[in-house]
Design a protein around this nucleic acid. Structure first.
Length: 270
DNA sequence: AAATATACCTGACTGC
DNA sequence: TGCAGTCAGGTATATT
């Protein structure tokens, strides 16, 4: 699924193709996403020029002359550039046509995504209370350590809570905890500062590496160049339950934490 | 207040 | 071959 690295890869891929391009028209085939697409979205954006592409958490923010698009790809969403030669397929819910003939096309089979309009996206309720970006310097071990004191929640659920740090989804939480040698069920409040330092380093490394590689994702994710955005990062534990730990050869185990499947090595992670 | 459960949705997969 | 059932997962929201 598109996690932070996929959204960042998408942003970088789209940026040179969208900047300073003007919206000619928009087609909404299916407005029923996580929240309905505004009925007047086409009217609101037609004639406006793209001025910037930002990313905050897993939200892609497209700045137009007088309004922003807030776009979340949900579980199965993807954005690609195409044109009128390529007919829309079953789950292609939105087209944004540009005056240069390109079409920004949104596909999302499971429709967990969202496309919203906002005058000021950073003040939008969805974004205003988010924690730090994991790759920025404000995201530190001290921050996590302080916020986790007296918390009994499992550390995996804790780092997946966007109030504490954004962009750490199930795959990267699982991998980061393995790399840090921390058991995913351990109470967040009972982890030392030294271990949080290791964990923060691992989160940053894992995400940075994934961005470098073009992002991991479900097989239906396609990046903005139309290539599969799926350079199968060497996942150490995610999806490998029952298989052998690359470090110690123990059998990897699967447990459920906060309704999410969690794979870990019972020997390496304590 | 904190922790946990639920809801949204469809494709892939499993077992009959 | 089909069909019913299960699972996956981001994250806002409801419930305990």
């Amino acid at each position: 699924m598109p996690e932070l690295p996929e959204v960042e890869t998408t942003r970088r891929g789209l940026k040179p193709h969208l900047l300073e391009q003007t919206v000619k028209h928009a087609v909404i085939r299916q407005p029923k996403l996580r929240w309905p697409i505004a009925a007047d979205l086409t009217t609101q954006i037609t004639g406006q020029t793209v001025r910037a592409l930002h990313r905050r958490s897993k939200y892609l923010l497209i700045q137009l002359d007088s309004i922003w698009l807030i776009w979340h790809l949900g579980m199965s969403g993807s954005l690609r550039l195409t044109n009128h030669q390529s007919p829309a397929e079953k789950h292609d819910h939105v087209d944004i046509e540009l005056t240069n003939g390109n079409i920004l096309r949104y596909r999302d089979p499971r429709r967990f995504g969202a496309l919203l309009l906002s005058d000021n996206p950073y003040q939008h309720p969805l974004l205003s209370r988010l924690g730090p970006e994991p790759l920025e310097t404000e995201f530190t071990a001290e921050w996590l350590y302080q916020r986790s004191r007296n918390r009994r929640i499992a550390v995996k659920a804790f780092i997946m809570d966007a109030q504490h740090v954004v962009g750490v989804g199930n795959i990267y939480a699982t991998e980061s905890l393995f790399q840090a040698g921390i058991h995913p069920s351990r109470a967040a409040g009972r982890i030392s500062l030294a271990r949080y330092k290791k964990l923060v380093t691992c989160i940053k490394e894992v995400l940075a590496f994934a961005i470098e590689q073009g992002g991991t994702s479900l097989k239906d994710f396609v990046n903005s160049d139309g290539q599969p955005g799926y350079f199968a990062i060497e996942l150490q534990v995610y999806g490998r339950s029952g298989k052998t730990c690359f470090h110690c050869q123990s059998e990897l185990k699967n447990i459920t934490i906060a309704q999410r499947t969690s794979v870990f090595c019972p020997s390496c992670q304590t």
